[in-house]
């Protein structure tokens, strides 16, 4: 189980981006982490997988515990070895490497399982098998997303963090990505699914968090969030005015609360 408690992350020693974030990902579950641009979702993923250093970022307070072990300040390679892999925002396939070589990098910490995991990935994504000798840089966005997910599977993680896997994909592909995530989860890998596409994420999530300005502002079971009026209005745009500036989720809540007092 992943437990992030009261995490604070600062970039460049000054910019406080996570302000006491707490979330949990129980074993075997799919947890969605939602939030608008700049809420700190990617930062949360970086902190969990030890990648803050690359961005002059630091966890200054709070802890990230993984199955009882404090991984707050661990090296990325140790975190992958401990069983957490990330599919990064923007896919980040190695464009000058072939599909096979990309998958091989994913197996860097898990040589022994390489053959077995490779077969499993190829079974799941026959498209990659067809293109195994091709440079990843020449593949379509959808294929690259499959490759990025497949690459993470090569490490056989116990927890997979996916950062906006549906970004820039056509609706049909979003469906496909969602199904793949469900499948990976059904084989025993916990999932932390970071999304702006709340509908997609909540439709498979056991539990969801909504974050805003580096904090969780709402949480609940996936289906419950999906049914919540505020979430609907703000994230699913079911009642929202299409044209105007997007209000902050908190503004929506304040407004609602005030309305309740007034009535």
């Amino acid at each position: 189980m992943l437990e992030i408690s009261n995490l604070e992350v600062v970039y460049n020693e000054v910019a406080l981006v996570l302000r006491g974030l707490s979330i949990e990902v129980p074993d075997g579950s799919v947890v969605a982490l939602l939030g608008s641009n700049g809420a700190g979702k990617t930062t949360t993923a970086r902190a969990t997988t030890g990648l803050l250093d690359n961005h002059e970022g630091k966890s200054t307070k709070g802890t990230i515990m993984w199955n009882g072990q404090d991984i707050t300040h661990m090296k990325p390679s140790s975190i992958v070895r401990a069983g957490i892999s990330q599919v990064m925002e923007g896919r980040r396939c190695f464009g000058e490497l072939t599909v096979d070589e990309n998958l091989a990098t994913g197996a860097f910490t898990n040589k022994d399982g390489a053959k077995r995991n490779y077969d499993r990935v190829m079974e799941l994504f026959p498209r990659l098998l067809e293109r195994r000798k091709q440079l990843a840089g020449y593949m379509s966005g959808g294929e690259q997303q499959m490759l990025a997910i497949g690459r993470a599977m090569m490490a056989e993680p116990k927890l997979m963090i996916l950062d906006e896997p549906s970004l820039g994909l056509a609706p049909l592909l979003v469906q496909q990505v969602r199904d793949v995530i469900s499948l990976i989860n059904s084989e025993g890998t916990s999932i932390l699914l970071i999304e702006q596409n709340a509908m997609m994420a909540l439709s498979i999530a056991d539990f969801g968090y909504i974050m805003e300005n580096g904090k969780i502002v709402m949480d609940g079971e996936g289906q419950k969030l999906l049914a919540d009026d505020d979430v609907k209005e703000f994230y699913l745009g079911l009642h929202g005015d299409e044209s105007g500036e997007r209000k902050s989720f908190r503004d929506v809540k304040h407004y609602k609360r005030r309305k309740k007092w007034a009535s």
């Binding site: 390679s77 992958v80 070895r81 892999s85 990064m88 980040r92 990098t105 994913g106 860097f108």
Partner: peptide, 8 residues
């Protein structure tokens, strides 16, 4: 960074 994310 992506390489580090693979545990390299």
């Amino acid at each position: 960074e992506a390489a580090q994310a693979q545990g390299i």
